[in-house]
């Protein structure tokens, strides 16, 4: 318990430091937030334009799809705020040998490397995503129970941790490849599988993609399961599956990360 409190205090201290650092360059900070707002705005215009041409996309109505988009925006925002910038800097730490300074500190290496800085410029995405979800729910005008909300939150957190475990594994590969670019490109590929309803993956091309990225590398579940639980149907089998997959993938990613650190050979003198 004491150790846990220590980590909570550390996160708060790092968050305060990150915010102070961002606010030192207020203009840049505001511009970054403006770009995120603009991006959401563009995404909403895109789907509004689509839904002027059709009433459903893969069995999702406009309001349901809006909820899906909000859910994606909030979850992606959390990943970008908490982990992405830290993970993308990892290969540079390996290349320069600065990773040594992280390994000698009396704290868990995975925590320090993946959670050390909070990117506050993407934090408003979480609130914007929440706003889109609430708007969609108001449009849908369906009764929502406490159990449904609790299940959604559980599955949302599960999806976040599942996405984090994939990010950790991708980050770990930097020890062997020492290349910065590939991580962000692979992550871009992963998010392109997360951001659409699973029903679009049909046919001779989509079918195999669906099976592979649902049952072997379950990245497609990250947004689909919580969003479906809230606005379509609760599928107990998928809910149990995502929670179990999260637990297994967190364990696997931890092992992969430690294995990668064992393979690390310092580059500094």
């Amino acid at each position: 318990m004491l150790a846990l409190m220590r980590y909570v205090r550390l996160i708060l201290a790092l968050a305060r430091y990150g915010l102070a650092r961002e606010l030192a360059f207020r203009g840049n900070f505001l511009a970054k937030i403006f770009v995120e707002v603009l991006w959401l705005f563009i995404l909403l215009i895109f789907y509004r334009t689509i839904f002027t041409q059709t009433s459903v996309v893969a069995d999702w109505s406009e309001s349901e799809y809006l909820f899906f988009v909000g859910c994606y925006f909030a979850l992606e925002g959390l990943i970008e705020t908490l982990f992405l910038s830290n993970c993308s800097e990892f290969s540079e730490l390996v290349r320069s040998g600065d990773l040594d300074f992280f390994l000698i500190r009396p704290i868990d290496e995975q925590f320090l490397i993946t959670c050390r800085a909070i990117d506050w410029s993407t934090a408003p995405n979480v609130l914007m995503g929440l706003g889109v979800m609430v708007t969609a729910l108001v449009q849908l005008d369906q009764p929502i129970g406490i159990v449904q909300v609790a299940l959604f939150l559980l599955l949302f957190v599960s999806g976040l941790l599942l996405a984090y475990s994939f990010l950790v594994m991708l980050t770990s590969t930097a020890v062997w490849f020492v290349r910065n670019q590939s991580l962000l490109e692979m992550w871009w590929l992963f998010t392109s599988l997360m951001r659409y309803p699973k029903e679009i993956f049909t046919g001779p091309l989509g079918g195999p993609i669906y099976w592979f990225f649902t049952f072997l590398v379950p990245v497609m579940l990250v947004i689909n399961v919580p969003a479906r639980t809230m606005v379509k149907v609760f599928e107990p089998w998928f809910a149990v599956y995502i929670v179990m997959a999260t637990a297994i993938m967190l364990w696997v990613s931890r092992r992969v990360f430690r294995f990668a650190l064992n393979s690390y050979r310092s580059a500094s003198s």
């Binding site: 951001r195 309803p197 046919g203 091309l205 989509g206």
Partner: peptide
């Protein structure tokens, strides 16, 4: 990601 975009447009045309 182009593959997922193509699949999305397939779904849009099918839905419309």
């Amino acid at each position: 990601p182009m593959v997922t975009t193509i699949l999305l447009w397939h779904a849009i045309y099918a839905g419309s």
